[in-house]
Design a protein around this nucleic acid. Structure first.
Lengths: 150, 150
DNA sequence: TTGCTCCTCACGTCACGTGAGGTGGC
DNA sequence: TTGCTCCTCACGTCACGTGAGGTGGC
């Protein structure tokens, strides 16, 4: 399970204890045996975790179908929940993309210093160096990472 | 600081203790006073945390400039590190986008069950229902969330 | 019989959250 | 003088990581 799902033994045991993976069969010696459906579940849980969701949310998502009285109701609730998850992911992707662009811009600015051999400005007065004083705005990440304005 | 940066008092104190925010001035009564540059740093740290980076990595990133002997060397090291961070973010964005598409597809499939009133198939035999047996593939998320194939 | 893999405690870690009880500063 | 905000411990939490010491199963 662990190797087939890119997780660890500890994680599998933890998810079982947390009630995410169903009480499974055991071999006589105590080894866990899982049906293949649990492997797919483990993979989905791993992806959702990487996407930033808590185990509680994931557990609710997995339990949702069984708590609805009819198929139609289950469908409507699940669709609503999925819409929430998708919205949250859209937000996270946007945040990551904004930050990525800021880091890319910082990279472009700091690349201009690759040939710097100026001991008068580095490291304490980089903010006064003409390289940092071009017309374009210096992104916030640069003034933090390069300790300008002190 | 906390309110201006969308974080909490606890987080500010924790980051100070972790050495991320510099030892700051204190008022006579013990209240912390921060220069505005530390506010921008706190914001950047928060963004990087949300992007999935550990405090250790962030600390190294912030300390990198001071550890280089010359401006040119500092620039080259920082650019290399930023490239790593950017690559990692590209990967995370890709993963999020793939998962988002899978959830969207799952949503579209399960929407077909919104009018279901079939107590013969729901909830244990949804896999045998004709709604699930159309030509298009059922995504993995659906077979997990809808407990098909048991 | 020998290795490698799995088992169960159980403590550690990371990044904070959450009170308890006390003080600052307008 | 009254509130609200900040302070310091210090224990709790979430999602696992990491040994220690033991057994399974080919």
């Amino acid at each position: 399970m662990a190797r087939l799902s890119d997780s660890t033994l500890r994680t599998v045991r933890f998810y079982e204890e947390a009630g995410l993976l169903q009480p499974v069969q055991r071999t006589e010696g105590g080894h866990r045996l899982f049906p293949e459906s649990e492997l797919e579940k483990l993979r989905l849980v791993g992806d959702l975790r990487e996407a930033g969701f808590a185990l509680d949310e994931i557990r609710e998502l997995c339990a949702l179908k069984r708590q609805a009285p009819t198929g139609g109701e289950a469908s409507r609730r699940m669709v609503a929940r999925l819409d929430q998850q998708i919205d949250a992911m859209t937000g996270r992707i946007g945040l990551l993309e904004r930050l990525k662009q800021e880091l890319e811009q910082a990279r472009r600015v700091l690349e201009r210093c690759a040939g710097c051999q100026d001991p008068a400005h580095f490291p304490d007065s980089c903010g006064e160096c003409r390289v940092m004083k071009r017309g374009d705005e210096v992104p916030a990440a640069v003034s933090v990472l390069w300790e300008l304005e002190r």
